[in-house]
Design a protein around this nucleic acid. Structure first.
Lengths: 199, 199
DNA sequence: GCCTCACCAAACTGAACAGTTTGGTTTGAT
DNA sequence: ATCAAACCAAACTGTTCAGTTTGGTGAGGC
């Protein structure tokens, strides 16, 4: 009976190696060794390196931020509510996405998307889609409650997500081995500046 | 006499192959064939694939946007001046960075930065540094002219660059083969929303 | 006892590819 | 004419690596 235990054991090992060495730098021998599994068993569970990659990255990206939707459904009845929720959303986004694992994941997705369309789809449907949807939900509630002006929702979302992306890309991705994570106060300052545009 | 003509011929070919096939997918044989040069000559001009990569990408990234500094030095005496300059800067940024070549360049830099620190440095000192500096210059002029409020310059820059990055990353990089370039009106709407925060 | 299922280690195959070497040909200056 | 610098095509070397094959071991069911 081909249980899930071995499969997950393989996934854990593969994820570790992929994140640390990149896709090109990862050999199937290395994965097998790290997972504590024979190479043959590896090929019983996964037909190819590509299949392994898609499966492993897909489930990693899916398992992240499971508690996040709760956040977006909080009531937004006042300017202060909105500020608090946006601060929370922004901080979750920045601190998650700037963790070493997530940055490594970014690199892999961005590089492999071209040759592996399955990855491109997974990526779009999880990370950007989720964060955008979460912010849009919050802003919709805020608009319904009359807390923000009647602005274009997509634009307002971009104006919010964008500055957070500057942290992730300019201070994270572009500085391998020397990531500069902003503190929460800094993120809140962005939120405050943002609120001046939409309220 | 080892002239520059052959060298540039090699660079052109190498750039084409690197952008189209990625670094891992590029063989030195392919580069030589595309450049119309023998493999041996290739190795006379460049000691290794890595040296070729750094040289080629470095000069591509340096040759871009040479006319841009002119823009940032325009006078910003009124709200309308500011709007016009920011619109121009934003549109230059978005339309340049979302071109197929630039997106391919992004992918390579992001993937290779980790193993090739020289690339990371080149990247930071050119693309982000230049665009940030340009926006900061404009905003500084605007602040001196009393056109915008006394906001934190770094924050105000992030709030401006960020939304443009959403176009580049979410609608460009994340959609290989199906890039959605926003039209100029859409970019101007972002600029207008932005101006509500800083003026 | 024996059979089968899940696993293992290790050797193997075939292809790709960075970098080198060999053995030339062209060109242009003297 | 001759010599040297620049170039070329093509074969070669050594390595890495995805994926396969071989020849097993141990454990649970019957």
């Amino acid at each position: 009976m081909r249980g899930n235990a071995k499969r997950e054991q393989i996934c854990r090992g593969a994820l570790e190696v992929f994140l640390q060495c990149g896709v090109a730098g990862t050999s199937m021998d290395h994965v097998a060794a790290t997972a504590g599994v024979s190479k043959q068993t590896l090929y019983v569970y996964f037909r190819s390196k590509e299949e392994l990659l898609v499966d492993v990255l897909g489930s990693m990206v899916n398992s992240l931020d499971e508690r996040a939707p709760l956040l977006a459904d909080r009531a937004v009845a006042s300017h202060n509510d909105l500020r608090a929720v946006l601060s929370e959303v922004a901080w979750t986004l920045v601190s998650h996405l700037m963790s070493p694992n997530y940055l490594a994941l970014f690199r892999i997705f961005i590089a492999e998307m071209v040759s592996t369309p399955a990855l491109a789809q997974i990526w779009r449907e999880t990370v950007p889609a989720r964060f955008l949807a979460r912010v849009e939900t919050v802003l919709t509630h805020a608009r319904e409650a009359g807390v923000i002006k009647d602005v274009d929702l997509d634009l307002a979302t971009r104006l919010f997500i964008g500055p957070m992306m500057t942290f992730v890309f300019l201070d994270g991705l572009a500085r391998p081995g020397n990531v500069l994570v902003p503190n929460r106060e800094r993120v809140d300052e962005v939120v405050d500046l943002y609120l001046r545009a939409v309220t």
